[in-house]
């Protein structure tokens, strides 16, 4: 097996800067296909920054700059000829706070395919919407009110709508930035179950500061900390079971047992 068969994304010596501030220092991270990889660490250590570098969302921050490489399909995402728009279609994102568009549930899902040059018919689009909603475990909740505003749903439903929306453009990878932090425990559980289903077809990278969630739901875990210059670095990365039961680094152990300052 070549690396790119086993792995979807490989970050190589990736450093991220905001202006002159180095937020991420030389991260190496291989994201395995059809697995859930969790990024954990104290707040401000750069988890979101790493995640956003995986689909070039950091392009939208004028001061942000990425050094090193992120390999996807044997191409560096930061090579000059790569188009960020296509990257983001292949590598979707779900955000910390649910952010449905102020449109109908149907149009929320259809937005992505439409802008991406959808050629299918109206019924095919209906199918796609239903399919995406089913895969996000939202279909039964909303099948009778597809024309209702996405904002009318509950928080957990909104977040699943955002997941469904991301699925509709058929990405390979879904990046999730603390997708449950604004949700109640029951909704959180639903999303976690959903992730387990989705990983059969997608690669998932999730940022979480909830240790139980990482332990419960992920296959691999990367633990980040800030170094002396306040730049985020990977302290330890490995299968979730190993990392939580048998951490190699003292700092990891301190963090997962809650002894961290």
């Amino acid at each position: 097996m070549t690396t790119q068969d086993r792995y979807t994304l490989n970050a190589r010596n990736m450093s991220v800067f905001y202006g002159s501030f180095k937020a991420i220092n030389s991260v190496n991270l291989d994201i395995e296909r059809n697995k859930i990889t969790a990024l954990i660490g104290p707040s401000g250590c750069g988890k979101s920054t790493v995640l956003r570098s995986f689909n070039r969302m950091n392009d939208l921050v004028p001061s942000a700059r990425v050094e090193g490489e992120v390999i996807f399909h044997n191409q560096n995402l930061y090579a000059p000829h790569v188009d960020a728009v296509e990257v983001r279609r292949r590598i979707g994102m779900v955000f910390q706070k649910p952010n449905p568009f102020p449109k109908s549930i149907y149009d929320n899902i259809a937005f992505g395919p439409r802008i991406s040059g959808w050629k299918g018919s109206k019924t095919e689009m209906d199918d796609l919407v239903e399919h995406s909603l089913r895969n996000a475990a939202l279909w039964d909740d909303v099948k009778d009110k597809l024309k209702a505003s996405g904002l009318a749903l509950s928080g957990g439903q909104q977040q699943r709508l955002c997941i469904a929306r991301a699925l509709a453009v058929e990405p390979e990878v879904i990046l999730m930035d603390e997708p449950c932090s604004a949700l109640d425990p029951i909704s959180t559980l639903k999303i976690e179950e959903l992730m387990m289903e989705l990983k059969q077809r997608y690669t998932i990278v999730i940022v979480t500061h909830n240790m139980q969630q990482a332990a419960r739901a992920s296959d691999y875990t990367a633990f980040f900390l800030m170094n002396a210059e306040r730049a985020g670095e990977i302290v330890e990365y490995g299968p979730t079971g190993d990392l939580f039961t048998n951490p190699k680094d003292k700092r990891t152990e301190d963090y997962i047992t809650g002894r961290f300052g």
Partner: peptide
Amino acid sequence: LREGAYGLGA
């Protein structure tokens, strides 16, 4: 909302 749209490849 803008991020949501960019995240879908807009």
